[in-house]
Design a protein around this nucleic acid. Structure first.
Lengths: 211, 211, 211, 211
DNA sequence: TATGAATGAGGGTTCATTCAT
DNA sequence: GATGAATGAACCCTCATTCAT
């Protein structure tokens, strides 16, 4: 295989294989042999390009973080209104977490392995979203009674939870439809509920007061 | 140390140590040596009691699952009303995920390692809660427009998310207070929001009816 | 081979084999495989007993140093007069350096590899001998014009030099006799010369003065 | 660096770097990477010029031997009298072993590694000096009772010994002065003592004459 | 001449597991 | 029940060497 003496392409092939293997078995559970075998090269060549197993892992995390940032942030910046932006970002986030199982899993592994790089990037995004939510609260477009970070936790938490348990749910609850269909259906319902979370309760309180 | 020729107590000591080590580093990242060292016995003795590293892990998972089930279910069965039960279960769940970092982490590891035992138990609980939520919907006490499982995802998802990211949030957003205080504050706000999620939109229906 | 489950004897067998291999090829040039093969055990067992290649080397050095100290010091303490002691120590030192090629070589390796343990022990001996030589100078039994350490260097240096080059000398100069015979002959001549080195030059100076 | 497409200068740069690295860590302990890094070229280029690690080492040894021969022999040939020559050669030898730590160390490494090239060259020099000493004995200028090779061993041995242990001596015996000063002081004292070694025992001859 | 991609062997070390005691 | 001697496989990594460019 891979006899092409092209360092750059080899390096990328290694990175791709590494992502898959690390996603499947985590850092400790993966061996360089698994990766090298997966891309048809010798054991030592990985270290020729990446020096360390640890270093390779770092580069994998970095690459994934870059992808995440690009996906989620680009989405947000093209939106015109705040509401639109939230909706866009939510759909993008959902899509990302829902579909990119490699990112999804490696993010979890890295968290457990105390490899905080990815975690920090993710938190940064959430943090920058809190500013938006805070603004929405001041504009009367989001429930002002709670911290923005709580609102965001209510928003993104279910997405993570769903991607983690959906397969098990499908099995245990004998849900009909493919995972894609279930995903779609969940997303629609989720968007309904999340609206209620953000909704400012002025009428109700007014009415209550008036009662 | 641990000269007490008491097989049963040794076995339990191993289990306790194993939980801690596995929680910290996962299955692949843990070695029997770490565990045996932690409880002051020889390497071989673990295998005398548990036969396998894998087997030991299974027993750890089983033991944790048992604890989880007991904690969450007992809580539910002592409640008198549905609303009370939901509230009790939520608080118990939050407490459990929030505080029992060993369970918390091992549950994650096991998920990633495709060790589905714990996952199944957890899903079973959620599944059995869907029945309750379904009943609430029929009683007009929960938003009937979405699947019960979606409602539960909205409920438990944020709790998981919070326990995973709270440390990072504290750091990045420079939140004041100890983690315990932040936990408490999050829980209060969360309960406010989750109420809105469940709330039946009677006003809307009234308005609709009036049309 | 070596199926005897006797840790202590195994440990010693490893030490013996290690001495030989390290003497032959130095630390960097030796592999644990060479040693384990030499005493018919598995690779890992060495590390079970000695934890580290480095650690094993340390223990080898320590053991050799102990032997050296015992040999040379015991000799000295049984002597009755200073002259006797010097003669005894010299013969013992010569014998040691001449015959114990393992010590001889490992001492050199360790010096080059900046493993100073042995060097320090050897220096300590020389240092303690300087006291004796100093006393001899004060008693008029050793040339008082030079430092004791210079005298000792003149004494031991040739012994080291001889053991290092004797084989080559035998070949190049086509010396007759076995190495043992050459050794013996060298020792006798050496003892004649070394006496001259120590000799106090009183007559000469007297004669000179009388002139 | 070192972009000069000048094969010859590159080759020499490699040789210089190799000497340093080999002197520091011996053959087994040195890697081509260390050397190539030291002179800022690629790994493969060394082998382009020297074909082998072993071969490179050979060339290093050869080059060092050449230098040694030139230094010591040139010295001898410019002297006018035998006594002068011995003194000159001694001072040159002392200077060489004392200062050229690279030669010094590599000579030791090579000895231990059974790489006899250097050893042979050194022995050749000593051998050719035995002729001079033998002549001196016949001329009544050197103690005739011992073999010339023994006399030479008494002469050069202390120099080697001193260069090997001087640092340790300085430390252990807490000698004052820099190493250069200690060297100088040792040399002066050594020359005094070595004279006594060579000295023909005239008293004896007086007695003989009186017979 | 010079680079660096690629290999494969070997090295030190960890580790689960077996087994005699 | 408990220890620790012993094994063998696997792992990460180094390194000399080859070879295409």
């Amino acid at each position: 295989m891979r006899k092409a003496r092209d360092g750059e392409s080899t390096k990328e092939a290694v990175l791709t294989a590494a992502k898959q293997v690390f996603a499947e078995r985590g850092f400790a559970g993966s061996s360089l042999a698994m990766i090298s075998k997966k891309c048809g090269i010798s054991d030592g060549l990985i270290l020729h390009h990446y020096k360390n197993k640890q270093n390779l892992y770092h580069e994998v995390l970095e690459d994934l973080a870059k992808g995440y940032l690009e996906t989620v942030f680009k989405t947000g910046q093209e939106s015109h209104t705040q509401e639109q932006m939230i909706d866009d970002v939510l759909r993008a986030t959902f899509k990302f977490w829902s579909e990119d199982t490699i990112y999804n899993r490696i993010s979890l592994w890295a968290f457990l392995e105390n490899q905080t790089e990815l975690l920090e990037k993710e938190t940064n995004i959430t943090a920058s979203l809190t500013a938006v939510v805070g603004q929405m609260q001041m504009d009367g477009k989001a429930d002002p009674r709670v911290d923005p970070v709580t609102l965001l936790t209510m928003t993104i938490g279910p997405i993570h939870f769903w991607t983690r348990y959906r397969n098990q749910f499908k099995e245990t609850l004998q849900l009909d439809g493919t995972i894609e269909e279930l995903n779609q259906s969940f997303l629609e319902q989720f968007l309904i509920l999340i609206q209620k979370v953000y909704q400012v309760e002025n009428k109700t309180s007014t009415e209550k007061e008036s009662e």
